[in-house]
Design a protein around this nucleic acid. Sequence first.
DNA 1: AATGAATGAGGGTTCATTCAT
DNA 2: GATGAATGAACCCTCATTCAT
Lengths: 228, 228, 228, 228
Amino acid sequence: MPSSKLAPERAEDPQARRERRKEARPGELLDAALDLFVEKGFAATRSEEVAARAGVSKGTLFLYFPSKEELFKAVVRENISGRFSEWVAEFEAFDGSTAEMVRYCLRVWWERLGATRASGITKLMISEARNFPELAAFYQQEVIRPANDLIRRILQRGIDRGEFRPMDIEYAVFSIVAPMVFLIMMKHSLGACAPQDYPLDPERYLQAQLDTLLHGLCVQPATQGAGA
Amino acid sequence: MPSSKLAPERAEDPQARRERRKEARPGELLDAALDLFVEKGFAATRSEEVAARAGVSKGTLFLYFPSKEELFKAVVRENISGRFSEWVAEFEAFDGSTAEMVRYCLRVWWERLGATRASGITKLMISEARNFPELAAFYQQEVIRPANDLIRRILQRGIDRGEFRPMDIEYAVFSIVAPMVFLIMMKHSLGACAPQDYPLDPERYLQAQLDTLLHGLCVQPATQGAGA
Amino acid sequence: MPSSKLAPERAEDPQARRERRKEARPGELLDAALDLFVEKGFAATRSEEVAARAGVSKGTLFLYFPSKEELFKAVVRENISGRFSEWVAEFEAFDGSTAEMVRYCLRVWWERLGATRASGITKLMISEARNFPELAAFYQQEVIRPANDLIRRILQRGIDRGEFRPMDIEYAVFSIVAPMVFLIMMKHSLGACAPQDYPLDPERYLQAQLDTLLHGLCVQPATQGAGA
Amino acid sequence: MPSSKLAPERAEDPQARRERRKEARPGELLDAALDLFVEKGFAATRSEEVAARAGVSKGTLFLYFPSKEELFKAVVRENISGRFSEWVAEFEAFDGSTAEMVRYCLRVWWERLGATRASGITKLMISEARNFPELAAFYQQEVIRPANDLIRRILQRGIDRGEFRPMDIEYAVFSIVAPMVFLIMMKHSLGACAPQDYPLDPERYLQAQLDTLLHGLCVQPATQGAGA
DNA sequence: AATGAATGAGGGTTCATTCAT
DNA sequence: GATGAATGAACCCTCATTCAT
């Protein structure tokens, strides 16, 4: 009877497959839930739909997650994996100009996050933060702070090397973050609703943002703060 | 003893009070609805709660607004789109440099929208767009399109007058929109959860964004697109 | 002040008109209610609509009729005016053959009842009888019994004069009543819904019913009851 | 001591009982719905009441029928239109004279529909048609059209075989339909209120209608249309 | 008498959650 | 563990009825 366990490489017997599936269950459910939460928001996602997409019954979902809220929390926590350390290292080894670094930053961000399913987490988090304050705190700590730190260091590098003008670094960080967040929100919300009204081409968008970001709108560097 | 307080100007004509109430009702309901929609989202806001907060019964709400969706639209019109024409006129009469115009734009936007409760509508709409396509379309038409048009015209003016460098206007619009949307999202989402983690001072934020926006990060206006 | 009452022929003063209207109110309300009850049934008729059609406010309706049910009862009672005595006299004076009498009966019925708004009462009564048993009893007594009596006498005359074959008079009455009731029901229900599906021409309908009624479907008078 | 009653045939497999219940549910619900629709009308029948009568909760009803309208349609299909094909086949195989066919038609109709609870559907439909146009259209298509077609063919057969006189077939159909509809209306409307006033014996009623239908009232087949 | 703003009990429908199997 | 039938609390919206004016 346990012979099947002794012959792992042979044709799967159903018992074994079942065991493996059992362990995979939570992951499959979280996967399905991520998609649906991102697409429809927390309230509008039906538990049954999550279960169906994961290929199990409604009851099973509640076997693994005691409530829809807990499922949501698990989804977010599961998907906020800090890959920041790796990126930080990358940027520390970066060699070019800081302007190039900023360009690289947005490009990399888009490729590794913005364009992937993970961007849905950002959208989700921003949309539902008020309903899940503990998650929001978690997200703040795990994602936002490290990201801001990284960007802050890039800006500081630019200033230190005389490439960037002096600036209010703390808030200038948002000059880089805002375009990214905005793109994600568009992609997952209004842009997903009526694509014809938002023909948002990410490449072109990022290019335009970078141009503004690095050089501003004005022809001549005007005296800062003038007229404000 | 507080009789003077009870009849301050003249004896209230009860008919008049009733009439006043009737005229005040829509406003009171819109007020309550705005608060609740922003606080809990469209779907999670119960009609009865809106009515209760306005001090009337459930049925009364539907005397003034035929459905929850129409109530939402009325909230949007009352707080945002109904005011565009006035703002557009203001900008058409604007006399200074286009850089000043952009500064003025963000400042006015912040004072009249961003800083008010109405800004919650934007957050709400972006969060829930996918669940309410009809509302999203309405918002797109009534708010987003006019706003984008206005900004596009400002940018065009800058270019025409030789104040702004040539640019991809269609997408440069987002350079102005993104900082505003980002501020709103922070204010109503993560920022509303843990204000201590986001000591976001709007004035300082806007100042920093404007600096980047107009002059970019770099010391020297680099050749556009170079180094990318 | 009461001068207006003394000068009835002069231009109406509003007070007088109001007085007259006041007396006409119940009738106008019953009138409006009849139309709507016939058209939409009791449950689906909204009180406010009745009031509106009568040109008064919702509140006024309840001034005259304490509830929708009472209004309904009043509508039916008001419209069941027995004009039977007059018709009975007419038929007693009838001179032609009894077959002609039957033809005359259906034609007269159609002209004076079936084609008029009064037919709505029949539809209404049959539709709502179960919900208003007292009205049903009233209708039975005031309308159905006299009508059946009249028809029974016509049939008896035919038999007595050797024009009609012997028959189960009590039930043969329905041979005349059924086509009339059926026409009314069609006219006010399914036929009013999808006229294109029921191109019911009353004249042609009555003609066809009379043909069957008087001569039957068979070519030869078969032996009665054969094969049954 | 009544243990034998508790396990009459064999020990119930609980799974089997549950399965059986699931399969029985739609039927039980349709049953309850038929009763209530007939008794109170479509609009006045509350979903919860249907569920309660079937011994389930409100929610369960909507597990089996997506809406009250669909429930009604299912009731009609279950009780009327679903049985037409079988009846049509019966008539196509009919061998006797067409007069016998008509007699058979009314008798069968009475036994299988008129005398059953399902006849209430007809009354209901006629009473409420104007309020539920979609249901009316459904009923027209699923019930009335097939029934009329069948009757039309019977009449045509009579004419073709020289048994029936030439006639306005389209309208002669009503000569057969009207007595049936009338009987139903009496049974479910006025007759259901005050049975003592309507001692309507269906057998005798149908016999009398058939006599008139086949042979008319007159002793001699008069020249058609004469005297009108 | 007349008004019409306000009420609030329902009714159809949804869906997270439970639990017998 | 897994299932999915069943539940029932909500939620949006309607409309007969009331009552202050």
